[in-house]
């Protein structure tokens, strides 16, 4: 199973490493990253593998939100099923 993490906010040093450190802590494997910096707005989408995670998914969501908040970023961690349901027949 996969989760989709989106990160939106002001670009800063260590942004990707900080967010991916939370993934590593929770044994969440990042399988794809796309990112863009538009002026100084940073937009990133990570596709992650959550089958081997060592915490509850809701706990992982909390940790990502906490880290995002610390860094002044808007983070959404969502199960892939929502996107598959809405955009695929």
């Amino acid at each position: 199973m996969k989760a989709v993490i989106t990160v939106i906010g002001k670009d800063s040093v260590g942004l990707i490493s900080n967010m991916s450190a939370v993934c590593a802590e929770c044994h969440v494997n990042i399988v794809d990253i796309t990112q863009k910096v538009i002026e100084d707005l940073f937009v990133m989408m990570m596709i992650t593998e959550i089958d081997g995670m060592n915490v509850k998914f809701t706990e992982f969501v909390d940790r990502m939100n906490k880290k995002g908040k610390e860094m002044g970023l808007e983070v959404h961690t969502m199960h892939e099923d929502i996107f598959n349901a809405m955009h695929k027949i």
């Binding site: 996969k2 989709v4 989106t6 796309t34 989408m45 596709i47 959404h76 969502m78 892939e80 929502i82 996107f83 598959n84 809405m86 955009h87």
Partner: peptide, 10 residues
């Protein structure tokens, strides 16, 4: 999963 779909949902 496409980036467009993700951002549309968001």
């Amino acid at each position: 999963i496409s980036t467009n779909d993700v951002f549309e949902t968001l």
